[in-house]
Simulated scan of single mutants.
Amino acid sequence: MAKVIQWKHGSSEDSAVFTGALKEITIDDDLHTIRLHDGETPGGALLARVAEVPTKLSQLVDDLSVWRSDELTKLSQLTNDKGFWASGALTKVSQLQNDSGFLTGHCTYCTHCTYCQQCSNCHNCTTINCTTINCTTVNCTTIQCSVYSYCTKCNCDCTDDSCFVSGKLETSKGLIDVHNILIGDEIIDWLGKPVKVVGVSHGHLGSRRAIQMKGRGENRVTDDHPMLIFRTKRRTYELCACINSKFDPNKIILADNGVRGRYSEEHDYCGWFIPSIAMPADTPTVCPIAEREAIVKFGNGYVLVPGRLS
Results as ranks from 00 to 15, higher is better:
I5D: 15
W7H: 12
G10P: 05
G10T: 13
K23G: 01
K23C: 05
T26F: 06
D29N: 15
I34W: 14
R35C: 07
L36M: 09
T41I: 07
P42H: 07
G44L: 04
G44K: 02
A45I: 10
A45W: 12
L46V: 15
E52C: 07
V53N: 15
T55H: 11
T55Y: 04
L57I: 09
L64G: 10
W67G: 08
E71M: 13
E71V: 10
D81R: 15
K82N: 08
W85D: 09
W85L: 07
W85V: 09
A89Y: 09
T91H: 11
T91Q: 06
Q95V: 09
G101F: 03
L103V: 13
H106D: 01
T108N: 03
T108I: 05
Y109H: 13
C110M: 01
H112Y: 13
Q117C: 03
H123G: 06
H123S: 12
I128A: 11
N129W: 01
C135L: 02
C135E: 12
T141G: 01
T142M: 00
C145H: 08
S149I: 10
T152F: 00
K153V: 14
C154N: 10
C154G: 12
S162V: 02
S166V: 04
L169R: 00
L169K: 03
E170S: 14
T171Q: 13
S172I: 01
K173N: 09
I183T: 06
D185V: 03
K196R: 11
H202V: 03
S207V: 02
R208D: 08
R209D: 05
I211H: 02
R216L: 09
K233F: 13
I243D: 08
K246S: 15
N250Q: 14
I252P: 15
I252T: 13
I253S: 00
I253L: 13
R260E: 15
G261L: 08
E266Q: 07
Y269F: 10
Y269Q: 06
Y269M: 03
F273C: 08
P275G: 09
S276C: 10
M279I: 07
A281K: 15
E291A: 07
R292S: 14
K297L: 05
F298P: 01
G299Q: 09
V303G: 02
V305P: 00
P306Y: 02
P306H: 03
S310Q: 13
